[in-house]
Design a protein around this nucleic acid. Sequence first.
DNA 1: GCACTTCATGTTTTT
DNA 2: CATGAAGTGC
Length: 813
Amino acid sequence: MCPIDDFDAFEAAAQVPLSVRAMAARPAPYLDGLNPAQRQAVETLDGPVLMLAGAGTGKTRALTARIAHLLVTGKARPNEILAVTFTNKAAREMKVRVGRLMGETVEGVPWLGTFHAICVKLLRRHAELVGLKSNFTILDTDDQIRLLKQLIAAANIDEKRWPARQLAGLLDHWKNRAWTPEAVPASEASGFDGRGVKLYAAYQERLKTLNAADFGDLLLHVVTIFQAHPDLLDQYRRWFRYILVDEYQDTNVAQYLWLRLLAGGHKNICCVGDDDQSIYGWRGAEVGNILRFEKDFPGAVVIRLEQNYRSTPHILAAASGLIAANKGRLGKTLWTEAEEGEKVRLIGHWDGEEEARWIGEEAEALQGGSRGMRPFSLDDMAILVRASHQMRAFEDRFLTIGLPYRVIGGPRFYERMEIRDAMAYFRLAVSPADDLAFERIVNTPKRGLGDKAQQKIQSVARAEGVPLVEAARRLLEAGGLGGKGGAELRKLIEAIGRWHGEVRAAGPSVVLDEAALIDDETVPLGRGAASSHVELAERILDESGYTAMWQADKTPEGPGRLENVKELVKALEEFDNLQGFLEHVALIMDKDSEMAGAKISVMTLHAAKGLEFPVVFLPGWEDGLLPSQRAMDETGLKGLEEERRLAYVGLTRAEELCTISFAANRRVFGRWQSQLPSRFIDELPASHVDVLTPPGLCGGGYGAAAPSHGGGSGIEERASRADVYKSPGWQRLQARSAARPVSQPSQARHMVIDAEAVPAFETGTRVFHQKFGYGVVTGIEGDKLDIDFEKAGSKKVVARFVVAAASADDIPF
DNA sequence: GCACTTCATGTTTTT
DNA sequence: CATGAAGTGC
């Protein structure tokens, strides 16, 4: 494991000499090539600093250099620096870059992580102050919903009218504002039939008895602790002498309070952000935090990074023109010295499928260097969508033509049912008192334990105040459950006890010395039993019958699920014990299994923040989709502006080539719906946009109608939506809309990428496809097969994406 | 208790 | 459309 990941290790390094002479003696290499603004941001170490860093202006570089500078000048030891990011991705990136910058010259590493990761660390030490034990479990949304459902039912509330999901959203909203149940203002308490606050209190009580915390609690509890224990806060203020915050525009009230508490003494806080990239308002982020910074920290130095090192002037100008429509910005003027490059391209399509087809072909063409551009690797390309359901059209298309792609932040690995089931077994092995885990798997696989049996266990647990596993044991002892279910339950309970015994034998669980805040901490590792936990995990899944359950499964997903479980076990190898693994998974829900080979990336705009790609496709710029209807309905102008910032984030991800597209028709809820091009398209400065003619539409394209009266005046002319409508291309689309039925057989040609021998198939062969499941070959045409899938219907698929299948149940595990 | 049906419901975005 | 919840028959 990367040493930077190990918080405990650098706490142990607290005694490193204050100044690191080896580095201080050399000229500081990390300052080379910084522009004056960046340099100022690096060298202004003391006091509050606000770094307003536009997209692509090298803020991460400045931030990492600043850390280096703190260390080299001897202002701080590594472990006296607290660097907070918003996402795991950002934290990872920063760790890598700090590591690269500092090399091996410095022992120990800063506290670098997401708000949540750092809060867990703190909360584990002081859990008892909020009524938890230090080994509390972190609930994921699924557990949370199940718990809330129980509470709603217990309160005799109609779950149809007041769904648990809605309550979860409400609690999240409150926790983001750092409101404990008592602190929820009366004006807000009317939500959820007026019983929200009561349920909130009940929920918190329940969490305490379960020894669990949800995501919001991680922050909320720490803030509560700091507020109630000034002495403790004081220790941490002395401990974290320099604080750095990335993506400050995304902080919510709880995070803001947390920061203000910690920075309250020395005020050595440096916040980096860009109000134009604030896209998490729906999650409680307060742009106000960044706008208010100078008030909160009087005398703050404000530094603007405005030189852009990422995009071409056309892309930059298009983005700037778009974002200029937002009101109440702090305002920045990005500029660049880059070569002019291509204009932003705009293209309209008949429907979503055609859009996917076109982008697929374009991606293939760009690899060969089309339009006089340099050749791009698929790794250089990204498709950024507004909502994750848009990704499906691309997946389907790319699977069909065999274009390698990678979905980032899609349906996440750790959220899959089979993974969560397996994790529940592991959780039980680590702590048998984990009731939520127990509930999840008592009857998975089927053990003949239905509602009735489970209710019996529940009532024993409630009556005697013991965890479910213990309650089940007592119930069996009392002979309260007979038959097949009883026998199965006994087997399960015994197995859990056995597994737990092995976990304990393998290594002592985390021992926390509550008194030692800053002192060395023994790093608890089950080293002695290096790989035994992997073996144990395999055995747990075996003995529980969980593996067998999927092996016996006949659905097309069965083998894939087995595969996922296998991967989960493999991921275990990188950890020293089960506990460590569970902790990791609770906080880092994404799994980056980087397979070899170039792939085009598909992700949401939110997931793309902080990333950059030479080639970017921005599909689905349609009213209702990119300015999302829901965002506008819920928060009106505020929502629209956030959508515009989202569009801005998309544009500014592109380095060299950016292509916006929209479709006239799209399937929404399974129904075909005609779409209007996004109003944001109107707002793009026309002189930086190239309107392309869609494939199959000969003659004047959209551009033909776009006016181009000489634009010498300060005001840019716009590629107006009305003009687009008048264009022959659009009218042709309209005409086709009437003439053509919904779907059209694909006529698209594509290059054959793969010349290697493809296993031969004949018609009638039963095959398996990763995504479409099982099917039978009905036709062969070159390297493409017509396959009639059992679940997915008939499709044309490239042969190398398919394997011959004997039968569903002989996939080995 | 379980497997099978129908029915409604909803699609942002994430730690 | 696709998932989940409620209802039905064994």
